[in-house]
Each structure stands twice: as C-alpha cells, then as structure tokens.
Design a protein around this nucleic acid. Structure first.
Lengths: 221, 221
DNA sequence: AAATTATTGTGACCATGCTCATTTTTTCTC
DNA sequence: GAGAAAAAATGAGCATGGTCACAATAATTT
C-alpha cells in the first residue's frame, strides 16, 4: 500500500469515526458537516472529497454494517422453514447490527430509503436497498412451495409492499423504548406473517370490478 | 369582516395560489420561498407569518383538498360491504382530489408524513394523518364483523402497518405514468386486500417462539 | 384628531449543506 | 534532486429555509 493511499484511508476512517461519535451524541441533523470536519481535523470541503453527501457518509457505515450482517445471516436462514420465519431472522439480524446507530438511522433513512426518495440521489442507499431486496427475493424463492401467488411480479408490486412494511418496522424500532425492544419484535412478527400471507392468493372475497375507478379528474369541456 | 382581516385573507390566498402554480411548474424543492414571496408580492419573511414552514404551506392545501374529499367519501362508503372495498373507495377518492398536486406531493410527504418524520414537526401533517387514520378506524369498526382479530390494538400496531402501506400507495401513485394511473389501482387493490386480510388471525403456521431474539447487542464484560 | 396600543410587513442576517477555483502535497520523469 | 504532472486539501463563497429586531400600518382610547 502506497504512502498516500494509506494516509487517505486513515483520513477516511477518521472522518467516519468522528462522524459516528457526533451522530450518536447529537443526532444526525444537529451534527453539521463543519462539526465533523473540525473533529476530524480537516477543512469543511474535504469531507466531500470522500463522500458525496452527509447522508452518503452515514449510509456508507450502514452498508458496511449490513454487509457483515448479510454474511452472518446466511447460516441462520437454513434453519428457517417458513418464509415468515426466515424474514424474521433476516431482519432481526440486520437491526441488531444497526443497533449502535439506532437513534439516528431514521434521520438518514427518511431522505434516502423512503419510497418518496428520488432513486439515484444516494447511490449507497440504493445499493443497500437493492441488496436487501435481493436477499428477500432469494429467501422467498427458496421457499416458493409455500406460495400460491406467482412470484414473477416480485419486482413490480410485492417489493414495494415489502419495502414499505420493512421501513415501518425500522421506524418503529428506531423509537422503541420498550425493554430490549420487545415491542419491535412483536411488530416484526406480525409484519412478517402479514407479508408471507400476502404471497398466497385466496383473496377474491369481493369482485375486482372497482378497477374502473378514475384517479385523475376528467377533463372538463 | 374588518378591513385588514380581509386583506390578510387575500394575501394568504395569493401566497397559496402563487405557491401552487410554482410547485406545479418547478416542483417543491426547486421552488424557493423567495420565489413564492416575489410572485405573491411580499417580503421573504412575510410568508412565515402565515405558515410555519414551506412544508406547512403545502400541507395546508393538501388538508383543504382532503377535507373536501372526506365529506364526499362518506356517501360512497355506504355502498361498500367489505373493509377492503371501503378502503379502496376511501383512498381513491383522496387521491383523485390530490391529483392536481400529484407531481410534488411526494416531496412534501417525504419529510412530514413518513414514519420517520418527527411527530409535531408539522402540525398540519399530523392533523391530516390523524384524520385519515380516524376515518379508517371508523370504516373498519363499522365492518368489524369481518374481523377475527381484536381491534383494540388498532392504535398500536395496525395503524403503523396501515399507514406504511398507504404511503407506499401514495408514493407509487405519485410516479405512476401508466394510463389513468391504472397500475396504481391494481396496487391499491392488492394493498387493501392485504390489509383487510391482516385483520384476521389465522396465521399461527409457525410458533411465535422467536420472541426471544435479541435486538440489542449484549454488553460485553 | 392626537396619542396609544395591537397587528402585520420588512429585509438584513444567520446557519448549513455543498461547490469550486486555488493552493498545497505527493508522485513521476529525467 | 529539479521540474512537471497528478492527486488531494483548502476555505471563501453560494443558495436557501428560516429568524427577528424594527418599521409601517391599522385599531382603540381619550
């Protein structure tokens, strides 16, 4: 490793380390990029030579942490029969690894991971979401025998629904003050069951004729 | 009505009207509060005498629109037997009224309505959400016979799940370029069925023993 | 109608995320 | 090692949402 490359890596690590400490102490929004720069002993602009944005800095850390969780989770999954069980194991593993950042994860997710966030605005966030959804996809396919619904539309609708439910869990967890976040576990249990259920089609209890509803206001003449 | 009161109302209306026009043309983020002030013929600070924030300005309009939708929807609901059907009618009515603002609704919802948003940060947003959830609650209770799940925990878990699913629909709709947003209708159909299904408990297909999972990293000694 | 009080408008000013021309440091070439 | 080229650091500066002390205007009192 060449000298400057090493120095660069050190600086990068210093930025990350100091940023995390500040986020933990004051939250994400109340930590300014100038705070981070001062703590890391660099100029205000330097941080942006390493990370595209303040969010990208935080998401980089989350991505690291979740990557570790991802390798760990593969073993656990083999023991899970049902889709709901597997999802439960996958998500709890991720949350456990995110635990040190629990108090400010929401501030970052709000503007990067939400379905309202513009795709492409934060590459790190997009990557985290995609990896997560791919894992879910594999996890479901490996247990496809439990599903009566065709899975080929996973990308189109199911992934939207899944992702929003997952975000609900993360948001709940990030504010959960119950001992050991047991309320989150209950919610997650319910959520994973709900999602697994949604992969079975038996839901024609009323006719699908409402499709002729109009969402856009008809043009006046 | 006193003279100044009238003038004040006029100014307020002018702010709203010009803001909407600008939002429509350039989006929410790309419209600055200075743009709005200039268009409305007031000083930059004046806008904040009328609205707490840029988001609050937009949410005020959404609240108005949804209030109108709310009165309209009560009639429609009487025709709906099932919970899913009723939800479908309720949500489509709201979306139809929001249609003129479709392109920038997401930019506002992202930071005010998401489960990550800090409650109390935007009073208008909180009110809209609460009203929406109350309507859903009534709508469900009036059809409680269809539910095997006890409804008394609605506030605790169900409302979180419902709200996140609803946001998924809104986000999807706000970017839906299919003719007449028919893709949104399909998604909404699926979503409302899914949610209605979740009000029935028959989901004990695997033991709930995973509750002993640990979310927080155990302290090292 | 003058004086006083209450309401509303104003724009200079602040904090902050981020940019970018310039400067400093490092690496490469001879 | 001197000079050139490439990489990295710098911090003044920009745009923007929002604040606030003060100014202007309207309403009330005498």
């Amino acid at each position: 490793m060449r000298v400057t490359a090493q120095k660069k890596a050190e600086t990068r690590e210093r930025i990350v380390a100091e940023a995390l400490q500040l986020f933990e102490k004051k939250g994400f929004a109340d930590t300014t990029t100038r705070d981070i720069a001062r703590a890391a002993g660099i100029a205000t602009g330097t941080m942006f030579n390493y990370f595209d944005s303040k969010e990208a800095l935080a998401m980089t850390v989350f991505a690291d942490v979740l990557k570790t969780a991802g390798t760990e989770v593969q073993q656990r999954l083999t023991g899970c029969e049902s889709i709901a069980e597997a999802l439960f194991a996958f998500i709890t593993t991720g949350l456990r690894h995110l635990d040190p950042h629990r108090r400010y994860v929401g501030e970052v997710y709000e503007n990067t991971m939400t379905p309202f966030a513009i795709p492409g605005a934060c590459a790190e966030a997009d990557a985290v979401r995609q990896t997560h959804l791919e894992t879910v996809w594999q996890l479901v396919v490996a247990r496809a025998g439990q599903c009566t619904r065709a899975l080929d539309d996973f990308e189109i609708l199911t992934s939207h629904l899944y992702w929003s439910l997952y975000l609900a869990v993360v948001a709940f967890w990030s504010r959960d003050d119950s001992p050991n976040q047991e309320d989150t576990l209950a919610m997650l249990d319910r959520t994973t069951r709900l999602f697994a259920q949604s992969l079975n089609v038996e839901d024609t209890d009323y006719p699908p004729n409402q499709q002729d509803a109009e969402l856009s206001t008809p043009e006046m003449e």
